Simulated assay, not measured.
Amino acid sequence: MTGPTGVRCTLMRGGTSKGAYFLAEDLPADPAARDDLLLRIMGSPDPRQIDGLGGAHPLTSKVAVVSASADPDADVDYLFLQVAVDRAEVSDRQNCGNILAGVGPFAVERGLVAPGATETSVRVRMLNTNERAVATFPTPGGRVDATGDAEISGVPGTAAPVVIEFPAGDAPLLPTGRIRDTVAGAEVTCVDNGMPTVLMPAAALKVTGYEQPKDLEEDLALADRLREIRLAAGELMGLGDVGDATVPKLTLLAPPRSGGAVATRTFIPVRCHTSIGVLGAASVAAGLRLPGGVGEGIAELPRHGDRVRIEHPTGFLDIDAVIDPDAGAALRTAVVRTARTIFDGTVFPRPPAHPSGGNDGSAPR
């Protein structure tokens, strides 16, 4: 059987997402050629992604492109690419903190970083935003070992912890310069602690904030309202026209129900996240600590310590968040995630579309 040339690929679960990890040298240098290849590898555009690696959901249609970094303050460069499921679109306009959890172990396994005898720290430059992170994980005997007792909501079983710390960046925590804004008639707090995020009370949108993601997605009036707010917030946050982007994220806030600080429902952009992204949660945690933000009167912040527990539809995510409210800056952000290699080998992409228009991934008619 003949077909397209295979590409070396590692499929990993990173946090509560799943994606294909590649060395940059194994993909075309030209972004257009790279994106065409990735669409064919993931099986897009097709709602089922039946002819590729994708799992028919944005959380399982992700790509990490990793390379040794020329920056003396980083070990590796990480480019995150979101591959649309039902559209021929690949976006680099955001980071992904969950897929980030697999970058350090991947870099060690592929020989980009030498492992330590007991644990390894990998300094990562996130090319999407030029922000930094340090991922630390166990390497007993100088080998990546994914077994451990760390448990994260939304993932069965336990695994080795990957502690990700985000140094304070240069971007303002408050992109609009204000703790509260009125956007398309809604009171919001716009915050960026690694992920541009718009916080708003769920009750203001006539929902409880405890609904199942599927039920929220089926609320067409809510979807229209969220689009209106997101487009206006994008302009206000300096992101320009975000009609075709997945940022900013929109997070609805409600009082906690399970011992956390707040209950959340997050939209990417109108699909409701079944959990919450790492960087989105980091922005939520920082936003909750801002006096006068929309979280006041909703969130129940801990009296002691830096840890903020963010409840989401399938459990919770703990974020260590320290901010300077006077300066409007994040001082420290850290999170515990887990990651695991599912397979490592060769992936064979779907053949390129025929000039006559066939083989384009569309559903049969």
Rank of each mutant, 00 (worst) to 15 (best):
M1R: 12
T2A: 13
G14H: 00
T16S: 02
S17Q: 09
G19W: 00
P31M: 09
R34F: 11
R34L: 12
D35I: 07
D35Y: 08
G43Q: 00
P45F: 09
R48Q: 12
I50L: 15
A56I: 04
H57V: 14
P58Y: 06
L59H: 06
V63W: 03
S67E: 12
P72G: 10
D73E: 15
D73C: 12
D77L: 08
V85K: 01
V85A: 01
E89A: 12
E89Y: 11
D92I: 10
Q94E: 14
N95I: 07
C96T: 01
G97V: 00
V103P: 04
P105K: 02
P105E: 00
A107Q: 06
G111N: 05
V113T: 07
P115W: 06
G116V: 07
A117K: 12
A117H: 13
A117F: 11
T120A: 14
A133V: 05
F137E: 03
P140M: 02
G141Q: 10
G142L: 04
D145G: 04
A146Y: 15
A146M: 13
T147D: 13
G148R: 02
G148M: 03
D149N: 14
V155G: 02
P156V: 02
P156Q: 11
P156A: 14
A160S: 15
V162D: 00
E165F: 08
F166M: 09
P167S: 09
A171H: 10
P172M: 12
L174D: 05
T176F: 14
G177P: 01
G177I: 04
D181F: 01
T182E: 09
T197L: 07
T197H: 01
T197R: 02
M200F: 06
M200E: 03
Q212H: 15
P213W: 13
L216S: 04
L216W: 00
A221M: 11
D224P: 10
R227F: 15
R227V: 15
L231A: 14
A232P: 10
A232V: 09
G234R: 03
M237N: 01
G238L: 12
V242W: 13
V242P: 03
D244Y: 11
T246M: 12
P248E: 13
K249P: 00
A263W: 10
R265E: 05
F267S: 08
V270E: 09
V270F: 04
C272R: 00
H273W: 09
T274F: 13
S275W: 09
G277C: 03
G277S: 06
G277L: 01
V278A: 12
G280E: 15
V284G: 10
L288T: 00
P291M: 07
G295T: 15
E296R: 04
G297S: 06
A299L: 08
A299N: 07
L301I: 11
P302L: 13
H304A: 15
R309Y: 08
R309A: 15
P313Q: 01
L317W: 08
L317P: 05
D318P: 07
D320V: 07
V322Y: 03
I323D: 01
A329E: 05
R332V: 08
A334C: 05
V336F: 02
V336H: 04
T338H: 06
A339R: 02
A339S: 14
D344M: 08
G345R: 08
V347E: 13
V347Q: 07
A353R: 05
G357H: 01
D360A: 13
A363N: 12
